[in-house]
Structure formats: C-alpha cells, structure tokens
Amino acid sequence: MSSDILIEVKDLHKSFGTGKIHALNGISTTISRGEVVCIIGPSGSGKSTFLRCLNLLEKPTSGQIIFEGDDLTDKKVNLNLHRQRMGMVFQQFNLFNNMNIMKNLTCAPMKLKKLSKAAAEAKAMELLNRVGLADRADAYPYQLSGGQKQRVAIVRALCMEPDVMLFDEPTSALDPEMVGEVLDVMKELAAAGMTMVVVTHEMGFAREVAHRVVFLDEGKLLEQGTPQQIFGNPQNERLKSFLAKVL
C-alpha cells in the first residue's frame, strides 16, 4: 500500500433542512491509493452521507473534498469529469431499468469516454465474465436476482475504469444467500489493488479485507485503525458498545 493520497477530506460538515439535523460534524481523513477503507457505525451515524459527499451526490455544507488534487467543492471544478473516475455502487443497485445489461455497461464508456461500441462491449464482456454473468448480457435488470444486479452494478462502475470505488451498503438489500457472491467480487477487487471506500454492516468483510476501519457516530469520526485495532482493541466507549451489539 503506497502512501499516495487519493482523496483528502477536510473538516466536512453536512446539515439537512434548515440546519437542525447535523449529519456530519467536521470529519477529516485521507484515503490513499490502493487502500480499502471500511466505514462502520450505527444507523443514522452519517456513514452513507459521508460516502455520498465524496462524489458530491450530497453537497457538503462546508469543508473540502480534495480528489486527485482538485477540490470538488470548488464551483469551478467540472464535477462530471471527476465522477467518471469515482465508481459508485448503491444499496438499491440502481441499474438503468430501460436498458439491458450490456447497454447498462457500455452507455457511459461510449458517451463519456468516446469508446467505440466494439471496445466498450469487449471490455464489458471481459468484466461480466469475471463476475460470472457473461450469459446475462442481453437480460434486463428485472430479470436478475439481487445478487446478480449488484454484481452488474459493480461491473458498470468498473467499465469506467475508476480510480476509486465507493460502496454504499452494497449488501444490505440482498437476501442472505446472495451476500456472499457480492462480497466475493469485492474481495477480488480489493486483492487487485482497487481503492475502495465501503460503508458496510458486514463486520466479517471489514475485518478480512479492510486496511483501515473507520468508526462514525453522530456525524463524528470517533476512531479509526487497522481491523486488528478496531475489532481487537477498541478504545472509544461508543465503539465498544457498538461492537458488543453487532459482533
């Protein structure tokens, strides 16, 4: 793992409504190239909001997100270009329902990266093969199971060859027997050196795959460290009581 910094988050605040609800209260951290960061915490702790702020799906109230040297909160930055390099995987998959799987995978590379149809499809097929779904290229999203949809959603993001993958509780909407197939794909991705930020309730995954685990509660980063430190020797009282409930 290199110490090359990919994303730097500086004093991130986010409040909803008229400022009454503070989802994030000054979070600062850095994410290095090749690092796998798992974000854990109780529901309502701001995990998803934090992740969604990284690609500005959620506009931070204040603070900075510096991605590959550019401050994404700067109004002059072309967000669309930066988002092409940040893949995102959602809890609810969000495959494009009006397109079949192949179109889901090729439309962005063709439109945004000006790839030829043949090149985009070859790339998509190669990745579909890797997740074991090459035979479903012509299917529509509704014809797939949840686990298959999520694997396609991961491939869709990968087709853009992003520098970082953001996962927003990727297995939370899945039936238990399908969680494994999605986690396996994510493990492979981590092993291949992809930078990943994963909001998850899967403590087993965090323990096994993460380089660093970040614990959020009430919009604050309360503790972070290696899985060994976080799960084996937690310091913060809230983290201790959280782990006692989920492990």
Partner: peptide, 14 residues
C-alpha cells in the same frame, strides 16, 4: 425512482 437519477449522475453523466 430517484436512484436512477443518482446512478446516472454518479457515473459522470450531466
């Protein structure tokens, strides 16, 4: 569904 919109924006579409 709003998720369709977010998925489009997150992949880099305007």
């Amino acid at each position: 569904d709003h998720g369709q919109f977010e998925a489009g924006r997150s992949i880099g579409f305007s």
